[in-house]
């Protein structure tokens, strides 16, 4: 570096140094703390342990159960939650705040409590339970109950996220599309959904992670069949850490990449959608 540049550089850098060093140090600590558990998991796992736990026939069944239940839960969520989110975002519902609070409640309640209350709502002895029985469904210790519990645990994340995504779409753009001759379904397809897509993807991915990892409500109303979180817990109880860590890894591998990819894509896309 040329010597005449030095004093100038130093004077510019020094006021930043102390405060930014502290800030960076704290940020690194927080970041490490966030990633710590994942690191610990990887440190304590060896390939042989993983094989021993996951290789036996049927050992991967909880994975498939979880995948199937989560896919179904998300499917139901997208079909029913997206229109609700759009109505909330466009303030088309009377007393919008009340509706929003209703969606928020499952998020604020401990999942365990949701599970307990679900027994009173849809358990075999309740009116809804009796209706369900008519169509040969039982919301207790069944695959159906697992899906139901996962929906309750993940719904607020999707609906509120999707609402935020729709709110971000400038209403004027929808009006412009309509004035250019688009009926509302066409405007929805050509303007609203593409512009909300990054936000929708992020909230869907978050909901996916929540559904895959749903445990609190699941342990109450869907002890069987075992999904991944249940199996992890059962193994912890019966075999100990060695038996449960491979399932924990399994859970992370399946639940995490989608949200992370969605997040990365969404932040990239968002930059291009702002004028």
């Amino acid at each position: 570096m040329s010597s005449y540049l030095l004093p100038q550089n130093r004077s510019m850098a020094s006021p930043l140094k102390v405060s930014s060093a502290i800030a960076i140090a704290i940020s690194v600590l927080v970041w490490l703390a966030m990633l710590g558990p994942v690191a610990a998991l990887l440190v304590h796992l060896s390939p042989s342990k993983i094989v021993a736990t996951l290789a036996p026939p049927g050992a991967l069944d909880p994975l498939f159960i979880s995948l199937e239940a989560s896919i179904l839960a998300l499917f139901v969520l997208v079909i029913t939650g997206t229109p609700l989110a759009w109505l909330l975002a466009r303030q088309k519902l009377p007393a919008g705040r009340v509706w929003e609070t209703g969606v928020l409640i499952p998020l604020l309640m401990p999942p365990l409590v949701i599970g307990l209350l679900l027994i009173y709502l849809v358990g075999p002895a309740t009116p809804i339970g009796k209706v369900l029985a008519e169509i040969h469904l039982t919301a207790s210790n069944t695959f159906f109950a697992l899906v139901l519990a996962e929906i309750y645990e993940s719904a607020p994340y999707y609906i509120l996220g999707a609402e935020a995504a729709f709110t971000k779409v400038d209403k004027r753009l929808e009006e412009n599309a309509a004035l250019l001759g688009d009926r509302w379904p066409r405007t929805l397809r050509r303007i609203t959904l593409p512009l909300a897509a990054p936000g929708l993807a992020t909230s869907l991915a978050t909901a996916w992670a929540r559904a895959m990892g749903a445990f609190g409500a699941v342990i109450i109303i869907a002890y069987h069949p075992y999904g991944l979180p249940m199996k992890t817990w059962i193994n912890l109880e019966e075999i100990g850490l060695n038996g449960s860590l491979p399932y924990a890894l399994c859970l992370i591998v399946v639940a995490l990449p989608l949200p992370i990819l969605a997040y990365l894509w969404s932040s990239r896309a968002q930059g291009r959608l702002t004028l």
Binding site: R172, L173, N176, L179, G181, D182, R183, L195, T274
Partner: peptide
Amino acid sequence: WQRTIGLLRQPPGLFP
């Protein structure tokens, strides 16, 4: 969509 009106707004609101 049925109005057949050409409207230029300010700001114009292009589809990003």
